[in-house]
Write a protein that binds this DNA or RNA. Structure first.
Lengths: 348, 348
DNA sequence: CTGTTAGCGCATTCAG
DNA sequence: CTGAATGCGCTAACAG
């Protein structure tokens, strides 16, 4: 209860319990070869002193890493990555591991700093959303065997465990859902093509068109590079074409919102489909189709890959594994679609 | 480059550099009393071996805590707390501290576990979003002087540094903004009254009414307890009153969305104001007033309080401090308010 | 079942 | 400017 010695050690506990430090250590590790009477004496002393094992000493002595996972994320403020972090934390906690988080802000230099830090801390494993063009600095030999899994982006320049979203399949299904209801001129607003997801989602879109026998019209392919302007600008430009599209596909949630703005203003009959779920989708005055998946599952799966490697002895020898997170297409109706709309008051 | 000895020590570096471990230590600490030639020899050896200081050994030896802040959060999946975490991480990183995050899921038991863990890890400070009815377990003496700051919720049963949002003032201003445009019958949908923010926001609402000389009508006060049903249900009930309110105030973002649904369906002319900002507010088919603040600032401020205490020697002696995060009222127009609406295509 | 010995890697202290 | 000795708190490996 009362704090006198700020950090009592095993010695202190041992003295109070009238045993040796070794017995304390054993008792605290649930070693069966300790007399019950000793155990209770130790526990009592621990309680009285407020003793807490010094992790640093334990780590130093055993040479084993902390039960600590390092998570390097590009942007915790983005709900997608926040959810991913939730998934990592959840899985880690369920397996007795803590999580240290670092924000790389998509800066490869900062990413390296964080990795350095984490390794100095002797983390037992790493989950990384990589930011640079290449991940050779994450190769098993340079990491001295600390297991790592990439999340949301694929390894480049080296083969590593990774968890990816089914971008291509999701985008294909999204576009296919528009084709299925008769759309033939479908505009696409993509991410910068330098981004992995951007490339994949464009591929998916194009393959859906090809499968439907619709020729790709270059005029209908927009993207939100820095030059092209905001998603809303790009959408507006597409809607202003001589032969405008009857539907728009947006490559992520932010783009979907931009496209929505443009549609509401300039061409309200245009259909809209977007990658990523929107939790306020039913509040919009527009039907919306989305390609949805569970970002937390990405984190959970990545953590699972890391912990799995941690458990298996010859971790370094196993080949890199890939996991793919499924994407499903969902339709949202608007509030206005509800037959009950405008029924006004119930009683009154 | 090549990894041979998985964890080279100072000894290894010293041997390779042809100096003693002590010189390595000094060189790595930028001790001025080291010959430049030794420094460069050490640095070269470090680089060649991929040496990295063992934090556990350093911590053990110095007795000082890690440069590590523990963050206990109730729900990382909630954007509010995710932003708060961003703020903590940002401030910590700017001051050379890492952050360990744990999700308590609002469970006081889990919170204690996490705190225990963090203290075993010898974190240098703590930021906690407390979940229990009382925070005596965070008192300075039971924490042996590890500085702690509460975020988003006030201390109970003990006086601690804390950072709170100006719930009362924000709610007051929110309601006042409705009064200012002539509303006299204003419905309020609150949080469960057991919640700190719930209480404060209700207070603010009532004080705005009182200031305007509007008597509080109990019929117009709803809340989203478990019994009362969802926010949408409560809103609908208010709108169905014999003399329905002309405006609704929602006590947080989720409630705002529920109220919005009810208004769109049953009483579209009702004005709406809500606590918390909504990043898609302008997409709704309804003008909206919100009481907005910066959640990341809550985290930053809490981290600042902790680090400040860390720096000052006699930290325990200082009285507990309180910081209040300002809340501002913002008006959103809808897309439909835009004069450019329905201008259709630009060129065509 | 229990205790003793020894050393993990580093930084403080003191002596060159 | 440099090095040798010492011990932080803990636990593996060995005695009892």
């Amino acid at each position: 209860m009362s704090a006198q010695n700020p950090h009592p050690t095993m010695r202190d506990v041992a003295d109070l319990a009238g045993v040796s430090p070794m017995t304390v250590s054993r008792a605290l590790h649930n070693d069966p070869n300790v007399a019950p009477s000793s155990v209770s004496a130790v526990l009592a002393a621990v309680d009285r002193l407020g003793y807490r094992r010094n992790e640093a000493a334990r780590v130093l002595r055993t040479g084993r890493p902390h039960d600590l996972l390092g998570l390097v994320i590009t942007n915790l403020a983005n709900p997608f990555y926040a959810q991913l972090a939730v998934g990592v934390e959840r899985f880690a906690a369920a397996h007795g591991q803590r999580v240290v988080i670092g924000n790389s802000a998509d800066d490869p230099g900062r990413e390296r700093e964080l990795l350095d830090d984490f390794r100095s801390q002797r983390v037992s494993g790493l989950v990384v959303v990589p930011s640079g063009p290449d991940q050779r600095h994450l190769a098993p030999d340079v990491l001295d065997g600390v297991p790592v899994a990439l999340a949301a982006r694929p390894p480049r320049g080296v083969d590593l465990d990774c968890v990816l979203v089914d971008d291509t399949g999701g985008a294909r299904d999204l576009t296919a859902s528009l084709v299925a209801v008769g759309h033939k001129r479908i505009g696409f607003i993509g991410l910068p093509t330098t981004s992995w997801a951007g490339e994949q989602r464009l591929d998916g879109h194009l393959s859906a068109l090809a499968a439907a026998g619709i020729g790709a019209d270059a005029d209908l392919l927009g993207s939100t590079d820095r030059l092209a302007g905001t998603a809303e600008d790009v959408a507006r430009r597409l809607l202003a074409l001589p032969r405008p599209p009857t539907a728009l596909v947006a490559a992520n949630n932010r783009i979907t919102v931009g496209a929505y703005r443009a549609i509401r203003r300039y061409a309200q009959s245009t259909a809209l489909a977007g990658f990523d779920d929107l939790d306020f989708a039913d509040l919009l005055g527009q039907r919306l189709t989305v390609a949805a998946y569970d970002p937390a599952l990405v984190g959970e799966t990545a953590a699972a890959l890391v912990l799995d490697r941690l458990r298996s002895a010859d971790s370094t020898r196993q080949p890199a594994r890939r996991r793919r997170i499924p994407v499903v297409v969902k339709q949202y109706r608007t509030l206005g679609d509800d037959p009950a709309v405008d029924v006004v008051r119930e009683q009154s």
